[in-house]
């Protein structure tokens, strides 16, 4: 008599009980690591360029200049001669500070030149002109 063997294979299953734990862990990670930009700045339309490089965030000090020539650093509207001491203060906090210009594309270059001269006097010599990637 032929015997039919019953296979005693265990069913393959992926344990999904800890799935929600993993998901919550990821949520917590993103919630903690997300930094919202606190600076409101000025409304600018940045110019476009192709050869742009990343600017290290932790060393950057953003200078907003809108098309009317309003200058804002750390949400403080300042005049051109004040750029000197504001940047000196920034330089004292961080020696490697990079002045990042967020300037409207229609701003007159004269204002920018004046600010650049102020930066030179403040000895903040690392400058970056922020731009959007040209496609």
């Amino acid at each position: 008599m032929a015997k039919i063997k019953k296979s005693n294979r265990p069913e393959a299953a992926i344990p999904t009980a800890s799935m929600s734990d993993i998901a919550f862990l990821l949520i917590l990670f993103f919630m903690v690591s997300t930094v919202f930009v606190a600076e409101r700045g000025l409304k600018v339309r940045m110019p476009r360029a192709a050869e742009i490089q990343k600017i290290p965030r932790n060393h950057s000090a953003t200078i907003y200049v809108d098309k009317n020539g309003t200058i804002s650093i750390d949400d403080m509207v300042i005049s051109i001669p004040d750029v000197n001491w504001v940047m000196q203060k920034k330089l004292a906090d961080d020696f490697n500070v990079i002045a990042c210009f967020r300037t409207d594309r229609n701003t007159n270059y004269g204002i920018m030149s004046d600010i650049l001269n102020q930066l030179r006097e403040a000895n903040a010599l690392r400058v970056s002109f922020e731009a959007k990637l040209k496609r």
Partner: peptide
């Protein structure tokens, strides 16, 4: 998770770097 993934916008700064000459 999907909500946070899609709404998180990293403020990447990109620009043209240059070093100014000292005074």
């Amino acid at each position: 998770l999907v909500f946070f993934l899609s709404t998180t916008k990293f403020d990447v700064k990109k620009g043209l770097g240059i070093n100014l000459p000292p005074v």
